[in-house]
Design a protein around this nucleic acid. Structure first.
Lengths: 195, 195
DNA sequence: CCGCCGCCTTAACCTGGGTCAAGCCGAGGT
DNA sequence: ACCTCGGCTTGACCCAGGTTAAGGCGGCGG
């Protein structure tokens, strides 16, 4: 077993026999990405996903009008991929970019589906993953509905302290749904009135 | 089989043997709700969900500060329930209210779990449901990030024409993340400059 | 028939965040 | 050492939407 820590992590989501995990490792390929390199670009087929072994990524949605907003940051142990597009069989509308030199473990969806045929544990895991992602998105929805930009910022750093210093401010702003300029203003405001 | 149309609908999501559906019908209970009656109130255990047979519901999140925002409207054929709380074993933070005299088909989560033990089709269905809900939430996230209130309004009516005349404007506003007043302004603006 | 209530609209005023544009560093590259 | 360039800040101005408050209007109960 090449990735025992990853195995343990996944096994907490759903029971996962070690030999099934070894089969998965056999079809997965490690990939190294330089800073600024893309794991996925818009227009690509959404036929693969990966687990981050090391590094940080940003998932950027490129809207029809060329605007770019950030859907998520992903660091060690988390999944990257154009999940929604994959589920719908659409080409990716997301670009996924390494913000640091990174390493990921890549799965082709075809090969993952083959694993699902072999043992129900993979379907169960996929269910838990879907449910988990749902919970994250619902939490985010609630923040847009109930919180001001400043409150969302505070919450962001509470929930993602490990991203400190690893993601540019402009990207945090794009994640919060505001501009770089507004973020800067909010920060200076807080500096003056600490609470 | 008491609800053949519902069976057909679910069978499009994941293969569902008719006899399994009959087992489900056997444990489900029909419930009638008057206008304004609550299917779920905040604080309740999130131990049941239902399919809407007739009527419209609104799912309202009551934030800590007493603010109320609307997570979703649900009409015929759709699911109601405090899904995120159910997944996390938390008490409901959502109130689900009938906007019209309604009928729903109620399942206890315990009983649904028993169905899951009996046949994998239920786990597969649950997975598809989770994935579907994820896609909906992600779409909504994107709308908050990329669109103005006016654009969100237009899209809302494009996507939910069947709700026309069935939900109060103030609720539409709360769903879009704006006030009743702002919604009214946007509408009068559009009346004057039709495009 | 009247008055109340729920729901919607309108108006006046305020404010958070957008836009545009001018700096200000600090890290590389030459 | 210098230049550039990318990322951050700041200021001036603008506008969408929030807040408050005053009606309008249709339906329903008394």
């Amino acid at each position: 077993m090449r990735f025992p820590k990853l195995f343990e992590r996944l096994a907490t989501l759903a029971p996962l026999p070690p030999d099934e995990w070894e089969k998965a490792e056999a079809v997965a390929k490690e990939q190294v990405l330089a800073k600024r390199e893309l794991f996925l670009r818009p227009g690509d087929a959404a036929d693969r996903f990966a687990v981050v072994l090391q590094g940080v990524f940003r998932a950027v949605r490129v809207s029809a009008r060329g605007e770019a907003s950030i859907k998520a940051f992903r660091a060690e142990g988390e999944l990257i991929g154009a999940y929604a597009e994959m589920l719908q069989g659409l080409p990716s509308m997301t670009s996924i970019e390494a913000l640091e030199p990174s390493r990921v473990l890549v799965f082709q969806t075809r090969e993952f589906q083959a694993l699902e045929q072999g043992h129900v544990c993979w379907e169960r895991l996929a269910r838990r993953v879907a449910e988990h992602h749902f919970i994250l998105k619902e939490r985010r929805e609630q923040e847009f509905l109930d919180l001001s930009a400043e409150e969302r910022l505070v919450k962001f750093w509470e929930e993602h302290p490990h991203l400190h210093g690893r993601v540019p401010q402009r990207d945090v702003a794009a994640y919060l749904g505001i501009t770089e300029v507004a973020l800067s203003r909010i920060m200076s405001r807080r500096r003056k009135r600490p609470e």
